[in-house]
Every structure is written in C-alpha cells, then in structure tokens.
C-alpha cells in the first residue's frame, strides 16, 4: 500500500493544496457553487476517462448513470425511509449491476457498439424518468432531502466544498493507483493493441468490464451527491446533452490524463458562467471546442501542453 501511495505524491499533494487554497479565492456562495459543481463533474470525468482514455471505449450514456444515482438519493429516503448514505450506496450497487449487465455482452463487440448501446440506455433512462410522474415527479423534477453523514446534516457551501474536495481527492488517488497498477498497464495495452495485449496474456475483456462498471458507479455516486447538494433534480440530468458534456470535459482535458479530466471539468463548468452574457453563442462555442480539441489537440489540452513543456525543458 505504501508503495502505491508513493506513486504520485507530487500530483496528489498539489491537488490537495489547490483544494485547500480554494477558500482564499472563492468569495461568495456563487463561487463555491461553481467550485462544487466542478468537483462533482471532475469525479464523473475521472471515471469516464478511465473508460475512454485508458480502455478506449466511449460511453454516450453516463448521464443516465448519474441520474440513476441522483434519483436513488431523491426517492429512497423520501419514500422508503432509507438513510441518505444507504440510498447513495443502494444507487451505486444498482448502477454497478446494470453497467455489468450491459457491459458483458456489449464489450465483446468492437468500435461503435458501446457508444450506441450506452446512448440507447441513457435515452431509455431519461424517458422512464420523464414518464413515471408518480415516482419521479416527471419533467418538472422533484426536491431532494438533506444529506446526513455520521448524524450530521451537510449544509452550507463550505461544508459541501470540503466534502466534495475530499471525495475528489480520494477519487483521484484511487484512479491514479488504478492507472499505475497492473490493471492500468493492462488497460494501456488494450488501448494500444487489443490483439497484442491478448497475446501477452492480458484478459482484455475482463479489464474493460471492470473499468466500465467502476466508471458507472463513480457517476452514480457523483449523481447522488449532486442531488443532495442541489436540492432539486429533473430528468434533464439523464439527457443525451449531459452525457455529451461529460465526454467533452474528458476530451478537452485530455484522454488518458487524470489531471486533464479535472482541468477539463473545471474549465467547462466555469466557462458557461463566463459566457453567461452571450447565451446565443454558448452552443457554438461548446461545439467548436469539441471539434477544435479533437482536430488540433487530439491528445487534449493537458497532455499536449505537458509534452510541449517537456520538450522545451529537455
């Protein structure tokens, strides 16, 4: 364990320092709100990046997992008297099982097929949430109760900031360990050449399923946290557009870069706030970022910049 811990102490320490320095920069509740949303997005993106960047599989339905987590946290405590933490875990387990059930048959196929299956699944989830008005409140959404942890209600921007900051740190630590473990190396091999990896004795299929399930569970947990934090959720959380936004964050930050995912999530959470006065152009900017990054910086912003800096220093 200590071996794993020491893998990337510099990066993790920096992340911790940035999170700890947050309150120096964040001046009001709105700033905290943006920072917390960025943190939640970053958690989802780290998981999604393991899938896209390391395992080379795309999901166009992660918003569906996010929304299932969110609705589990909204419905279970309210209707069935679950403890909020229990609801969060139940949501995560259900999403994990669902992801497992989808991944097993689909990941045997190649190329676009996971994209299609996850897309279809995400849309089905959003339609079900829309239609089941009696349970989900339908398109108008439903309110969500408070999150209690260890007998304490998590309330106030500062409490949420520290909670999300801590969880983001843990997620990053987990992901870095995964990436630099034998599993991560196997995944890299999968991305490079599946056949070569298989020939080397890597159980390609097993790892792909593992990463898919892990990323779905992360999305679900993030969804649960978001629901409690926001206090209100609508089926739009499951929308295709939301899935695309998550993919965009990963792509912009850089595939196969954990730091990139955090940067991508932060930039694309803050950017709409900066463009708030130009709502007509938000979609244009968003689309152009997606295309531009993929065409000009196919490795994403962070890895490309890092490479340039490395070259200059070398």
């Amino acid at each position: 364990m200590s071996n794993l811990l020491s893998l990337r102490p510099g990066g993790l320490a920096l992340l911790a320092a940035i999170i700890a320095a947050g309150p120096l920069v964040l001046q009001n509740g709105f700033h905290y709100n943006v920072a917390i949303l960025a943190g939640i997005n970053a958690m989802v993106c780290i998981g999604l990046n393991l899938l896209i960047g390391y395992a080379g599989q795309i999901s166009l339905g992660h918003a569906g997992f996010f929304a299932l987590g969110a609705y589990a946290s909204a419905i279970l405590p309210e209707r069935f008297g679950f403890h909020p933490a229990g609801a969060l875990l139940t949501g995560a387990v259900v999403v994990g099982l669902l992801a497992f059930a989808i991944a097993r048959p689909i990941l045997r196929l190649r190329g676009h097929y996971l994209a299609m299956a996850t897309l279809g699944m995400g849309i089905i989830i959003s339609i079900v949430l829309d239609q089941e008005v009696d349970i989900t409140g339908g398109p108008d959404g439903m309110p969500v109760g408070d999150l209690t942890l260890f007998g304490q209600v998590v309330s106030g921007e500062l409490a949420w900031y520290w909670l999300i900051g801590a969880l983001l740190f843990v997620t990053t630590w987990l992901a870095l360990n995964l990436v630099h473990s034998p599993v991560g190396r196997a995944l890299k091999a999968v991305h490079g050449s599946e056949i070569a990896a298989a020939a080397m004795g890597v159980d390609v299929f097993h790892y792909k399923v593992l990463v898919f399930v892990f990323s779905a569970v992360l999305a679900s947990v993030a969804g649960s946290l978001f629901a409690h934090y926001n206090g209100f959720i609508t089926p739009d959380e499951a929308s295709f557009i939301h899935s695309i936004q998550l993919v965009t964050m990963v792509v912009l930050g850089g595939m196969a870069s954990i730091a990139g995912s955090i940067v991508g999530a932060v930039v694309l959470t803050v950017l709409p706030q900066m463009l708030a006065g130009f709502h007509d152009y938000e979609m244009i900017v968003f689309g152009a970022i997606l295309m531009g990054t993929m065409i000009l910086l196919p490795e994403g912003a962070v890895p490309t910049l890092a490479k340039r800096i490395r070259e200059r220093l070398a």
């Binding site: 896209i52 080379g56 599989q57 795309i58 166009l60 190329g111 676009h112 994209a115 695309i244 993919v247 965009t248 792509v251 595939m255 979609m283 244009i284 968003f286 689309g287 152009a288 970022i289 997606l290 295309m291 531009g292 993929m294 065409i295 196919p298």
Partner: peptide, 15 residues
C-alpha cells in the same frame, strides 16, 4: 480513431 471521430461529429452537430 473511432472515439475521436464520433466526438468530432457530435461537436459539429452542436455547432
């Protein structure tokens, strides 16, 4: 790659 091309066309559709 497959993933990249999908993302480009999605970007084009939003644009």
């Amino acid at each position: 790659g497959v993933v990249g091309l999908i993302i480009i066309t999605i970007g084009a559709s939003i644009l």
